[in-house]
Design a binder for these strands. Structure first.
Length: 430
RNA sequence: UCCUCGGUAGCUCAAUGGUAGAGCACCCGGCUGUUAACCGGGUGGUUGUUGGUUCGAGUCCAACCCGGGGAGCCA
């Protein structure tokens, strides 16, 4: 039989199969070797008994080092003692490469050491589980929008200026002209929505802020849908449908990985729309009641978000923030011009804001006024204002931070484990 | 940028101002059911850097470098 993957072993009970992989760990008892083989889909224990194989193969098994690449043949046998339910009785062993002394041992390590060896750390059970769940989350996001008739439109990564003008951007040279790494694709999605109706972009974004917290990366991935003729209410319904769908997909397909991460599943099972909604005004009242010293007009800190989120069993919307704490393009509430038609979606358990969205200003005059108030240069945004000149319509959209969503669903204490090669304030390697 | 904690063997950590140690990894030996296997032996150190106090500094003092945790900003 040809190559079989470890996750498919249950379909081959009693058969001899070939597994191509790496040595995860090895134990020996003199005349019997236990070799844990990893192949990217799982881990299985191979049992090699001295009298059942040639002396050369038995000696080779004895010399195997951690992470050596090997091809083994063995008979699949169900065994109560095996963590995955199955074992291999080994019949053949072929060495592909004998690994040098592996830096990451089965014992514990510090975070700096692990981050320096991120390229190898990815092979561990835990990181492997996170990578697979991240992959599923990305796929479920794309399926959600594709199934609803959205067109995926890519936004540029090299841009002439800031999107919102607030955060610090990475600067680069563009043939003797200044260019910046994009911090959002949103403005471009507004243009695309006027062309295709329902659109989204999904790609990396960059922030040069010197943030040093468990919630920030310099380079992170964001999905940004934008819908023509959608208002604030439509926008929030789309958001809760998306988040509910993603969580249920992960629960459905990746229980084993969530188990590896020791995730409390019950905290995810409640994540079904509709999500609770509170206004900014109510959020301020709730915080004041909880003893926080905060006044109307201030933005929330990470601790404030946690206090609010803990009061609900699923993600909670906070809507209609004061104009002054939000971006220039957000549409004022016609009934209360001091607040805008926006919402933040706060994840439970202290994972913070995973979505920020709003209805956009569709009136040219008001947009011009806001840009002047924010000191934004007309030249750079001329094209953006054109969208309000030629068939302007009400429209809304939002941005969902992929890594914060992965951290929340996986129950990770720090965002640095949610992306294969994190870019942090002091880390550009590997 | 600010606050706070830390830096000792490849890794994780001990060590009253008085001879630098353990576990893991690695090497040698033992073991037919191990689950981070276990048992015996061995290799491995400019204690982050520079300067100071002292008869004597891993330990006390100063500056700097690097990292962890948190704040601000945000997704």
């Amino acid at each position: 039989m040809g190559q079989v993957y470890i996750e498919e072993l249950s379909q081959h009970e009693g058969q001899e199969v070939t597994i191509k992989g790496w040595v995860y760990n090895r134990r020996s008892s003199g005349k019997i070797h236990f070799i844990l083989v990893r192949d990217g889909t799982g881990i299985v224990q191979g049992v090699m008994v001295k009298k059942e194989v040639s002396p050369e193969i038995f000696q080779l098994a004895k010399e195997l080092t951690q992470e050596s690449s090997i091809i083994v043949k063995g008979i699949v046998r169900s065994d109560e003692r095996a963590p995955g339910g199955y074992e291999l009785t080994l019949t053949h062993l072929e060495l592909v490469q004998m690994a040098e002394e592996y830096p990451i041992t089965p014992k514990e390590h510090g975070i700096e050491f692990l981050m320096d060896h991120r390229h190898l750390w990815l092979r561990s059970r835990r990181q492997h589980a996170i990578l697979r769940i991240r992959s599923e989350i990305i796929k479920s996001i794309r399926d959600f929008f594709d199934d609803r008739g959205f067109v995926m439109v890519d936004a540029p990564l090299l841009t002439p200026a800031a999107c919102e003008g607030t955060t610090t951007l990475f600067e680069t040279d563009y043939f003797d002209e200044k260019a910046f790494l994009a911090q959002s694709g949103q403005l471009y999605m507004e243009a695309a929505a006027m062309a295709c109706g329902k659109v989204y972009c999904f790609g990396p974004t960059f922030r040069a802020e010197k943030s040093k917290t468990r919630r920030h990366l310099m380079e992170f991935w964001m999905v940004e849908p934008e819908v023509a003729y959608a208002d604030h209410e439509d926008n929030m319904r789309l958001q809760e449908d998306l988040v509910g769908y993603v969580v249920q997909r992960v629960l459905e397909k990746h229980r084993p990985e969530l188990d590896v991460l020791e995730r409390d599943i019950s905290r995810l099972e409640t994540v079904v729309p509709p999500f609770p909604r509170i206004t900014y005004d109510e959020a301020i009242q709730r915080l004041q009641k909880a003893g926080v010293d905060i006044k109307w007009g201030a933005d929330f800190g990470g601790g404030d978000e946690t206090i609010l989120a803990e009061q609900f069993d699923r993600p909670v919307f906070v809507e209609k923030y004061p104009v002054q704490v939000k971006a220039f393009y957000m549409k004022p509430d016609p009934e209360r011009p001091e607040v805008v038609l926006c919402d933040d979606l706060l994840a439970p358990e202290g994972y913070g804001e995973i979505i920020g969205g709003s209805q956009r200003i569709d009136d040219l005059g008001l947009l011009k006024q806001r840009m002047q108030e924010h000191d934004l240069p007309d030249e750079v945004y001329a094209w953006y204002m054109d969208l309000r000149r030629y068939g302007s319509v009400p429209h809304s959209g939002f941005g969902l931070g992929l890594e914060r969503t992965v951290a929340w669903i996986c129950g990770l204490p720090h965002i640095r484990e949610t992306i294969p090669f994190p870019r942090l304030i002091n880390r550009l390697y590997p």
